[in-house]
């Protein structure tokens, strides 16, 4: 199964649905979906690694926490995650190295401010050939 994502409707906010063959493969399309919600996000310049080490109770929580990290890196540091190298993704632990590049303000067009990645309707489930996850982001 090729990693993919789609956005879906929620009354005031937006939903993200991600599919991939493995749990680690969910991360990259989830990040892309988040940037898609924000707008046309372009990055440039030198790459800088960021290590993450997340503890949770289930994969859905870890995926939410991962996206919260991606959002913080964007919001606080004006940086964009360009690739993710996952070392561990178990039911309760996620470690990864993210490559980040600076947000290119001139080439980007930002349309929506994502306030947070919520726990509302948060879900990761097995589907034939892989996994499907859904999350709602607060706008």
């Amino acid at each position: 199964m090729e990693p993919s994502y789609e956005l879906f409707d929620h009354t005031a906010d937006m939903g993200i649905r991600v599919r991939a063959a493995t749990l680690p493969d969910l991360l990259a399309p989830a990040g892309e979906a988040l940037y898609d919600v924000i707008g046309d996000v372009k990055a440039g310049g030198d790459s800088e690694p960021v290590s993450i080490n997340l503890i949770g109770e289930e994969p859905a929580e870890l995926l939410r926490d991962y996206l919260a990290e991606v959002l913080t890196i964007f919001d606080r540091d004006a940086r964009v995650v360009t690739s993710v190298d996952v070392a561990t993704f178990t039911n309760d632990h996620l470690t990864a190295t993210l490559q980040t590049a600076i947000l290119d303000d001139r080439r980007s067009a930002l349309h929506r401010e994502v306030k947070a990645i919520t726990y509302h309707e948060l879900d990761v489930r097995s589907i034939p050939g892989g996994f499907e996850a859904s999350l709602i982001v607060d706008i």
Partner: peptide
């Protein structure tokens, strides 16, 4: 109060 989703 919102009536339509953003997508709609």
């Amino acid at each position: 109060g919102r009536l339509m989703s953003r997508g709609a």
